[in-house]
Amino acid sequence: MNIFRLAGDMTHLASVLVLLLKIHTIKSCAGVSLKTQELYAIVFATRYLDIFTSFYSIYNTLMKLIFLGSSFSIVWYMRYHKTVRRTYDREQDTFRHWFLVLPCLLLALLIHEKFTFLEVLWTFSLYLEAVAILPQLVLLQRTRNIDNLTGQYVFLLGGYRGFYILNWIYRYLTEPHFVHWITWIAGLVQTLLYADFFYYYFQSWKNNKKLQLPA
């Protein structure tokens, strides 16, 4: 464990807590993409299949349970909670996220480190996580008026993978034979997808005006 990875995990944790806070307290998920939340639930479900077979640390297992629990409960809230589900703008959140799942699955079947069931699904979760934010970014472009909590959620979610990139650089420099192109490229693509959001987020923060993404 290094400071970059810890910062990344804490930022990631903060992003899901911000979202859960928003949905649980104001009973609203306006501006939140259910498609992205469903993709993240799939990412965690396929990433943490080894939770029962391999144990690294209490921290590792605890965080996996938190991410699994939070992502599935957010999907539950947005689909089935009587008050929250009414605030979900179904008409705007129309990204065909299944068109992201299949290519990631095919790519994982083609490019992986080992051709085993767990490894292919784990690689699939890496590719899917890289693009899982797309429905949310599209929704933000459409809804334009981004409330603070949703903006913070996307900002923290984008920041966590950025910290992970620093973690991979650190591990590459300090651990011999630590080379994982698949993880690195997927993580880099993921962070780059946030680039324009980050630009507009900092602009709005600097000029102290509401976050507006160009149409």
Binding site: D50, S54, Y56, M63, E113, W168, H177, F178, T183
Partner: peptide, 10 residues
Amino acid sequence: PKDRSTKDEL
């Protein structure tokens, strides 16, 4: 065994 992969990461 602590394998050298990124599996110990979240």
